[in-house]
Design a binder for these strands. Structure first.
Lengths: 195, 195, 195, 195
DNA sequence: CATGAATGAGACTTCATTCAT
DNA sequence: AATGAATGAAGTCTCATTCAT
C-alpha cells in the first residue's frame, strides 16, 4: 500500500506546516508535529529519516503547492493583464494564508541562507515563479501591452522580488487590513515597471 | 565607568553579529558568542539578562547602524536623484556586507513574525527607512523630478519593499556577481515607479 | 507442522548468530536479525517471546552445536593423545569460525556475569566440555600416558580454562596468523600439565 | 586548577567502574554513572566528550591500575618463584575485587572484539602483563629454576592466557569459595609448564 | 502464518543559566 | 568584574513490542 504511506507523509507535512507556522522552525519539536498530526511521537521518525528530512520535505511540498496554485490561476486567463492580475490575486490570496505561508517561508529562507539543501529547493521554487513571470511578460509584449524594451528574464526576477518584498513587509507590520494596500500597490509598481 | 561597560556590550554585540551571521540565530550558542568575542562564557550573562536580551539588543544595534549609514550617505547629496542613488549604493554596499547583514536580518524577521518584541524593533527600523524614502520622494516632487501623482507615504513603503525583495532574492541565489544586477535593476524599477 | 516451526526458529537463530557476531549483543536489533534471516520484523516476535528469549535460545543453540562438534571429533579417536589432539583441532577449528564464535561467546559471558539465566546455559556447556576433558584424562591415566597424580576433575577444568584463555587472547590480538601459534602452544601447555 | 579537574575525572571513572560492574557496559546509562558519582547528569558530558569517551578512559584507567598493582607486587620480591607467586596473589587478589574487575573486563573485551580503540587499549595492558611475565621467566631461567627450553615470549603469553582463562571460568561459575581452587591450580599449571 | 505500521519508553546530548570563587 | 564548573530541562532518535490486517 504505497498510497497509504504517501497519505501519511502528507498528513505529517500538513501538520508540520501548521506547527512551524505557529511555533517557528527551530522551536517546533517532533513532539509538536506529532501532536498536530494526532499521531504518536515515533511516527515522524518512521516516515522521515530525521527532523531535517521533515523540513526539507516540507519546504519542497509547500513551495510546490504554492506554485501549483499560482500556475493554475494564471492558466485560466488569456490576456497578459488578466494573467498578471490573476497571478497577484493568487499570491496575495488572503491575510490568513499569506501569514501562514510567509512565516514558514521566512524561516526556510533563513535556513537557506546557510544551508545549500534548502537553497536548492527554494531555487526550484524561484525557477517556477520566474517561469510564470516570463510567460506573462512575453505574452504582454506580443500583445503590445507591455514595453518591448523590458528584458523578459530580468522582469521575471523583479516581479517575484517585488512580491516577496511586499508580503514580507506586510507580514512584519502585522496588520491584516494592510493586505489590500500591499496587494494593490504591488500590482501598480509591477504594472508601471512593465509598461 | 559606564563607558567601559558600554564598550563591553558593543564588543559582545559585534561578536554576536558575526556569530549569528555564520551559524544562524537558533544554532548559535552563548559559548559561540563568547568565543567570537574572545571572552569567557560568563561575560555574556553578566552584561545581558539572558540570550534573548542579547538578540534583541543585537537587532536594535545592527538595524540602527545600518540606518545611520544610509542616512549619512543620503544626507551628503542634494538632488533627489543623487540621494536616491546614494541610498541604493549605501544599501547595496557590497556582497560581503549584504550577505552578513541579510543572513542575520532574515533570522530576525523570522523571529519577528511571531514575537512582538522583535517586530517592534524592526518597525522602528522600517520607520527610519521610510523616512529616508519619504524625504527623497518629497524632494523629487518639489524638484519636479518625480511624478506628483505618487503618494509619498506609499512610495516610501514600496522603495523599501523592493530593496528588501531584491536583496533577499539575491542572497537566496548565492552568486556574488549578481549583486550588480540586482542593484541596478532595483534602481531602475524604483526610478520607473517614481517618474 | 511442528517441524516447520523448528526450522524457522533455527533459521532465525542462525541469522542471529551471524548478526550478533557482526554487530554485538547489545547493538544488534531485532530488525537486524530479521534482515539477516531474510524475514520480516514481526517473525522474530512470532517465534520467540522477546529479544531476551532469542538470545537465550541462541546461546543454548550455539554452545550445543559447538559441543556436538567437539564430542564427535573426540569420539572418532582411540588413544588419549589422539583424542586430546582431536579435541584441540576441533576447538581451534579455524580463524574465521573461532572469531565468529568467540565474539558472540564473549558477549554472552559478559551477560552471564550478571544474569543467572545465561550463566545457567553456559554452565551446561562447561559441564559438557569438562566431561570431554575428564574422559580424555581418565583414559590417558589408564593408558599410562598421563600422570596418575593429576586429579581428573581439576584437569578437566584447567583444560577448558587454558583453551578459552588462549582463544580469547588470540581474538584480542586480532591477527589470524597467530591462530596456529595459540593452538600449538595451548596443546603444549596442556600436555606438559597432564604428563 | 588542573588538579581539581583531574580529580573530578577520576571520581567519575571510579563511579563508572562500579556502575558498569553492577549493571553492564551497555545497560549502564550516563545517569547511572552520575548517580554513582553523586553528581548531576551534565557533569559526565562536561568532563568527557561522550559516553564512549568515558568508557575508553575507564578501560585505560582500570587496566593501568591493575597493572600497577601487579607490577608493584612483583617488584617487592627477589626470586623468580617468589615473583611468580606474588604475581598470582596480586592477580587473584580476592573474590570481590576479581569479580568487580572481570565483569567489567569481559564487557570491554566483548567491545574490543569489534572496536579497534578498545582493542588498542587492551593490547597495551597485555604488553604490560607480558612484560611482567617475561621478566619472571627470564629471571627463573637465569636462576636455573625454570627450564631453559621455555621460550620467554611464548611463556609470557601463556601465563596471561591461563590466568584470564581461570578467572573467567571462575567468574562464570559464580562461587566465591572456588576462588582459592582456581588460584592454586592456575599456579600449579603455570609452574609445571615453566619447569 | 506473516507483515509492518504505530507506539512510547528511555537514552544521549546540548546548552542556557546559576553561582561560588 | 570575570570565570567556568555544575545543573537539569528539553530535544532527537532508536527500537522492542504490540496489533490490525
Amino acid at each position: 500500500m504505497k498510497k497509504k504511506a504517501e497519505e501519511r507523509r502528507e498528513q505529517i507535512l500538513r501538520a508540520a506546516f501548521q506547527a512551524v507556522s505557529d511555533k517557528g522552525y527551530e522551536t517546533v519539536t517532533l513532539q509538536d508535529i506529532a501532536d498536530y498530526a494526532g499521531v504518536s511521537k515515533g511516527v515522524t521518525n518512521y516516515y522521515f529519516e530525521n527532523k531535517e528530512d521533515v523540513f526539507l520535505s516540507l519546504l519542497e511540498w509547500v513551495t510546490d503547492r504554492i506554485y501549483q496554485q499560482e500556475y493554475k490561476a494564471v492558466s485560466k486567463q488569456t490576456t497578459a493583464i488578466e494573467k498578471l492580475e490573476a497571478y497577484l490575486y493568487s499570491v496575495f490570496i488572503n491575510p490568513e494564508k499569506n501569514k501562514k505561508f510567509y512565516k514558514v517561508y521566512l524561516d526556510f529562507m533563513a535556513q537557506a541562507s546557510r544551508n545549500p539543501q534548502y537553497r536548492q529547493i527554494n531555487l526550484k521554487f524561484y525557477e517556477n515563479c520566474w517561469k510564470i513571470g516570463r510567460d506573462i511578460v512575453s505574452l504582454g509584449q506580443k500583445e503590445g501591452t507591455f514595453s518591448p524594451d523590458i528584458h523578459v528574464d530580468t522582469a521575471s526576477k523583479m516581479i517575484r522580488s517585488i512580491i516577496d518584498g511586499c508580503l514580507i513587509q506586510w507580514l512584519m507590520r502585522d496588520e491584516d487590513h494592510l493586505h489590500e494596500f500591499y496587494k494593490n500597490t504591488c500590482y501598480e509598481v509591477i504594472l508601471k515597471y512593465l509598461k
